[in-house]
Amino acid sequence: MLPLTLLVKAGLYLIMAISLLAAVASVSLPNIFHAALALALALLGIAGIYLGLQAEFVAVVQVLIYVGAVITLVIFAIMLTNRMADRSTPAKNSLGAACLAVAAGLFSILVRFIRSTPWPETTSAPAPGTSEIGQALMGPYVFAFEVISVILIAVLIGAMVIAKKDNPGEDAP
């Protein structure tokens, strides 16, 4: 089975390399539409890594939420914004230094937490997690779950209020 293990490892490293490259491309490409597509590729790569780690549920949800919904929304916003998707529009501004500072700060915080967290290593394969996740959401984490659903309802109502016409009778058919 040694060649197979090597093959799987090589595949995983390839996926990691592709998603890193795509992540770099998503912030450095001049065209914002291309940048959104590169971001989609990076997120797909992360889903691939989850699959490689046998977290099928997380991988599928990653594709469903991030690639299927968030990227679609991003592209939708780009295409609806006037002239945003034109090739002549420069996707650069003078906030580069500030962005770098914020990103570096976030990165240092993340590194600190990752280094201070103990990572238990187990040799046995993890159990299929869907039912465990469901039971955790309905059991110990039910409060957080409910709070999130209240926030989602608030967002839905807010979106409806924003999208509503100001004066329904004003514009006749």
Partner: peptide, 12 residues
């Protein structure tokens, strides 16, 4: 879920 997730990427 896999089916739904995969078919949702068609939009891109």
């Amino acid at each position: 879920l896999f089916f739904i997730a995969v078919s949702s990427t068609t939009t891109i």
